[in-house]
Amino acid sequence: MATWDPSNLPTRPGIYMRFVRAAAAQISGGTLGTVAIPLLTYAGTAVEKSFYTVESEAAAVELFGSANIQSVLLALAGGAKDVLVYTMPDTAVADDYVDMREALDARPFNVFVFDGEFDATQQAATKTWVARNRDEGKHFIVVIGGDAASDADPALGNARSTLNEDDYIVNVISGGIVGGVTYTSAEYAPYVAGDIAGTPISESITYDQLPLEDVTKRLTNSQTVAALAAGSLLFTNDGAKVKIEQGLVTSGLKIKSIRTQQAVTNDISRTATDSYIGKLPNNADGQATLMVAVKAYLESLGAAVLTNPVVMLDPQRPSVGDSVFLAVSYMETDTMERIFITVNI
């Protein structure tokens, strides 16, 4: 579903949606999803510049070899329904990354993450890519991370969040340790991508426990507050377990909110394309049918996602000819993330 500008309406038949960040002026929804990974090395039956959908370790070993599937296994362990793997050439250059992004343009997925690599140039290109796709109607989350040096200095990780500020980008600034193995934030980013893809939209990834024994750097309270203010995603060791501190994108918004917005955009677009565009008359009856369907869908998401959905014809724009303008509002349901207790003694 592409966006639309009131001052420059598209001429191509289709459904267009815009989000006005004002009081209760968004739509929410979503499903469990797919993580896309451009795999750098492989030694199985896979061939370069090809797509493979992987749902199990056995399939990944056969396709890519057991030594090359760390990122794939982390994404599956995090909770992804499956992993869409694109095989990069052995000595990938800048043009190969361009080819990879263009190939993924035509494939459905929910979260994109690199194969454990940290490359500032490719991260910048990915930021441009995700923005272009959003404008063209394709919506997904990107998860990035850094190297050991930036993991050791939260200021560097936060600077990366600022550099990659976007509603659709998550920047991990913490590395992790388990079983004597140390992961940089870029290497562990696929697990976070899987966690995002596998979490229902009625829930947040805030405080999700990670299968780690420790973080590579434990942040102080002031460093943690600064990281959250920067829109960084960090891990915290609370003395008993390692957990995600808060599920944020680099713009400072919550991942839950962005994912629900993305999912409902995709769901309404799919339904409208299949059942409404070119099939309903643009009169009172047809418009009522469309509005009832949209409202019923929003209500089906349940109170854990949103409440009080309202769907009506946009009073500012007449729905005439082949154009229908809807105004949708709702109250988004957040999850409990801060609990304040007063103890009277």
Results as ranks from 00 to 15, higher is better:
M1G: 13
S7G: 12
T11R: 11
F19C: 05
A25K: 09
T31C: 06
T34H: 09
V35N: 01
I37W: 02
P38K: 01
G44W: 03
G44R: 03
E48H: 04
K49E: 15
S50K: 13
F51P: 00
E55I: 12
E57G: 03
A58R: 11
A59Y: 02
A60V: 04
V61K: 14
N68I: 00
N68E: 06
S71Y: 02
L73S: 07
A80Y: 05
P89V: 11
T91P: 01
D96F: 01
Y97A: 00
V98T: 14
R101Q: 15
E102G: 00
L104V: 00
D105Q: 11
D105V: 08
P108E: 11
G116F: 11
E117L: 13
F118Q: 11
Q122I: 05
Q123C: 12
Q123E: 15
A124R: 10
K127C: 12
R134M: 09
D135F: 02
I141H: 11
V143L: 01
I144L: 15
A148R: 13
A148Q: 08
D153L: 04
A155Q: 09
L156W: 03
G157P: 05
S161K: 08
L163K: 09
S174I: 01
I177Y: 07
A189F: 08
P190H: 05
V192K: 06
G194T: 06
P200R: 03
I201L: 10
I205H: 09
T206L: 02
L210Y: 06
P211L: 00
L212Y: 12
D214L: 07
T216S: 12
K217H: 06
D238Q: 08
A240E: 07
A240P: 00
A240I: 07
E245Q: 14
G247K: 07
T250P: 10
S251G: 02
I258T: 12
Q261M: 13
Q262H: 13
Q262V: 08
V264D: 13
T265L: 12
I268N: 03
T271Y: 09
I277Q: 07
K279V: 01
P281Q: 14
N282H: 05
N282S: 04
N283Y: 01
A284S: 14
A284C: 00
G286Q: 01
T289Q: 12
T289F: 01
A296T: 12
L298A: 08
E299V: 15
S300Y: 02
L301R: 15
G302T: 08
V310W: 02
D314H: 02
P315F: 04
Q316M: 13
S319C: 15
D322G: 03
D322H: 11
V324L: 12
S329I: 04
Y330S: 13
T333C: 07
M336Y: 14
I339P: 01
F340N: 13
